[in-house]
Simulated assay, not measured.
Amino acid sequence: MLIEAQDISVAIGGRPVLDGESVRCKPGIMKALVGASGSGKTTLLHCLGLLLPVDKGSILIDGNDVTRYSTSARRRFWRDHTAFVLQDYGIMVEESVAFNVTMQASVIGRRVSGNKKRLNQSLEQTGLKGRENELAGHLSGGEKQRLALSRAIYKDANILFVDEPTASLDATNRRMVIELLADFAVRGRTVIVSTHDSEMIDACGAIHQVGSEARHIN
C-alpha cells in the first residue's frame, strides 16, 4: 500500500514540529525517516500511521484521502492493514509472551488462541521461541522490542510502522531485526522506519530527511 503525506504541518503544545512535510512510502521498499533529535521523525511516523492528526495537509493511502478518517475507520485501518513497533513497545506486561503475539484468548480459562504454527514461527524468528508462557513483564527492554516485532510478523500486516527498532539491541539482535524488517519489504509490504541508526539506514532502500529541503533520497 502506498502511504503519502502531502504538505502536512503539526504543532504540539503550540510548538511547530512538522512544517509542510511531504513524503511517499512505496510498498516493497523499506523507507527510513531520518533527522536530528527533535526533527519530528516520530511525529511524522505517527501521522502516517493515523495515530496523530495533522493540522494542515493530507494523508493518503493508495491515493485515497484518509486525513479526516473517523475513529471507527482508523480502527479498521489498524486492524486490517497495519502493525506498529513503537518505542513504548505496546506490550501488556501482565500477559504472557504468547498472548502479546496473537492477542487472542479463549473466554474459558484464558488460554491463548490463534494460529499456533504462526505463533511459533514468529517467536523463532525473533529469538523468543520457548518463552511463550513467560509473563511479558519479565522480559528485558530489548526482548520486549523483539516481542513487538513478533506480533507484527504474526499479523503479517500490509504496512509496518517502526520507531527506533534497534535502539536497545546488541549487535547480534540489531542485525536480526534489520534482516526481518528488510524481509517484510522484500515480500511487498510497506515498511516505514524512524531511526538514527546508521546500520538500519544503510539497509533501507529509500531515505527521507525530516525537516530538510533536501527531502528525498531514492
Rank of each mutant, 00 (worst) to 15 (best):
G142Q: 05
I29R: 12
N173M: 06
I153Y: 00
V186G: 00
L86K: 08
I217M: 04
F77Q: 06
G142C: 08
S72G: 04
A83M: 08
E143N: 04
K129W: 15
R187S: 04
A206C: 13
L128P: 13
V97T: 06
S37R: 07
E94F: 02
E132H: 10
I178D: 00
A203H: 11
E143G: 08
L45Y: 02
S39R: 10
A32W: 01
L119K: 13
V66S: 02
S194R: 02
L48C: 05
M200R: 02
G38A: 09
W78P: 03
V17C: 05
H46S: 14
N173I: 01
I29H: 02
C204G: 10
L60G: 03
D55K: 11
G188N: 07
M92D: 13
W78F: 15
G188V: 14
A136E: 01
E95V: 12
G211A: 04
F184G: 00
S22R: 00
M200T: 03
G49I: 05
I153Q: 06
I217V: 15
A148W: 01
Q6C: 06
A157I: 08
N100T: 09
V23R: 02
L135G: 15
R131E: 09
V54Y: 02
N115G: 09
L123Y: 07
H138F: 04
A83P: 04
V186R: 14
V97C: 03
E199L: 05
A185W: 13
S168Y: 14
G114M: 00
L181K: 03
S106H: 05
E213N: 13
Y89W: 07
L2E: 15
G38M: 13
S150M: 02
V66K: 06
T82F: 01
E213A: 14
I207F: 06
I8F: 07
G40H: 05
A157H: 01
Q6I: 09
R79D: 03
K116H: 14
Y154V: 07
I29V: 15
